[in-house]
């Protein structure tokens, strides 16, 4: 590994919009940083906010949840639930001192391959600024 800090980002993407958008970025050969790894769910509505807490515990330096634009959810409402849940967990995590630059949510549609790149770049850049997040890691703690 290089000496430079490379943030590790875990992202939860809905199958229909953001995952497809990320696929489109690939089909279009749009280049973006390799720091972010994707977990596919059918809908952002599936994303339990405690996944975010868990991701930090497991070693993520940043987390992204990305779904369909409001009104475009394949399941009609899932992204609205996701948005509400996310806004709450984000408030809570920031309140206990977790840098909000580590916690992101985005709307990326199936046609927004270029936007997906912008989102990844921003999420990675912000997590890089926030620095390594080892204080919450499960396996780092010995007592």
């Amino acid at each position: 590994m290089s000496e430079k800090f490379e943030p590790n980002i875990v992202a939860f993407l809905c199958n229909w919009c953001s995952y497809a958008g990320a696929d489109l970025a690939g089909t279009s050969r749009i280049q973006y940083p390799a720091n972010l790894k994707i977990i596919r769910v059918m809908c952002t509505g599936r994303v339990n906010p405690l996944f975010i807490v868990n991701a930090f515990q497991q070693g993520a330096d940043g987390v992204l949840v990305s779904g369909c634009h409001p009104g475009d959810c394949h399941y009609m409402e899932g992204n609205y639930y996701a948005r509400r849940r996310f806004s709450l967990i984000r408030e809570l995590l920031e309140y206990i001192g977790i840098d909000p630059r580590r916690i992101h949510m985005s709307w990326v549609s199936a046609s927004e391959g270029a936007k997906w790149k912008d989102v990844v770049e921003k999420v990675v850049a912000e997590a890089r600024e926030a620095g390594p997040f080892d204080q919450f890691r499960r396996n780092k703690i010995n007592w």
């Binding site: 409001p70 009104g71 609205y80 806004s87 909000p100 949510m105 985005s106 989102v119």
Partner: peptide, 15 residues
């Protein structure tokens, strides 16, 4: 609260 939503819920944090 968590089993409901409003389409115009706040979303200024969304990228």
């Amino acid at each position: 609260l968590q089993a409901s939503y409003r389409p115009d819920d706040k979303e200024d944090f969304i990228l």
